[in-house]
Design a protein around this nucleic acid. Structure first.
Lengths: 146, 146
DNA sequence: ATTCATGCAAAATCTTTGCACTGAT
DNA sequence: ATCAGTGCAAAGATTTTGCATGAAT
């Protein structure tokens, strides 16, 4: 647990940033809610529970910083809000999502299923792939049973 | 050209909507700029050139309607803006995009490269796929040559 | 002292909504 | 006469920015 925090701390330091108490509080919230896809507002509210003095702008600035450093990925499922998703330690690719159009649940897929597809893209379109975003919209197994 | 307009007109009628002059102007702009990924504001400005009396709210309402009817897809490349992309006639799947992180260009891929991946998702996660979004971020062939 | 980070409030941006009005059936 | 559609301006929501203050080296 703290290993991850240390790892992120190191990433910040490498780029010349400090892990301030506010940033630490924000990162901890992200770590404690890894499964969720929190919006900035969500993060802010959770951070406030333990550190009431923190400001929304700071949370935004922290999330922006973490996005730049690729500690988190900023995603958008089509509602008007940006959501933030921790990258797994050592991951160099964004993971995929299954969004249920009935219950709204979001499931993550760790596997990288796109190796073949990327090879095609690089070959056919001469496009050097650095990252990808893949989201499936459909009906999750729970909603199918209803 | 007008075939496409007729086709869209029919889609509207099927769902009980009319192709008003304002909607027609909006659709025409989309048809004339199929390659681009226009934001609502972009569409509005282009519509205004020929129909200055049209309001921004109407453009938004039209785009929302077209999105509902799956005439267009609403996409989001990470800047704060929604963009609108015409579906090809008869397409039931969203097409993919290659976003260049250097010059910002967006290239479209018509091929559906995800059949295998979808089969895996349906099988392994019991998730009934209805649609997908796939975007690659990387360096386009032009920028690679620089 | 200088520099980086914060908090607050104000501003900016994008999008939606309320409401009166128009136009077609 | 009704009802969907429109234009305008106002409101809403999300995110960014300016600036004075505070903490750390």
């Amino acid at each position: 647990m703290d290993t991850k925090l240390d790892y992120i701390k190191k990433q910040l330091h490498t780029s010349g940033y400090k892990l301030t108490p506010q940033r630490e509080a924000t990162v901890k919230v992200l770590l404690e809610n890894e499964q969720d896809h929190l919006s900035a507002e969500d993060v802010y509210l959770l951070v406030k529970e333990k550190s009431p003095e923190i400001g929304l702008a700071t949370v935004y600035r922290t999330l922006e910083l973490l996005t730049e450093l690729k500690v988190v990925d900023k995603i958008n499922f089509g509602d008007g809000v940006s959501r933030y998703d921790l990258r797994k330690e050592g991951d160099n690719h964004f993971h995929h999502h299954l969004v249920c159009i009935q219950c709204g649940s979001v499931q993550e897929i760790e596997e990288d299923l796109l190796d073949d597809v990327e090879a095609i893209v690089e070959d056919k379109f001469k496009f050097k792939v650095k990252d990808h975003r893949l989201t499936f919209h459909g009906v999750c197994n729970i909603c199918q049973d209803k």
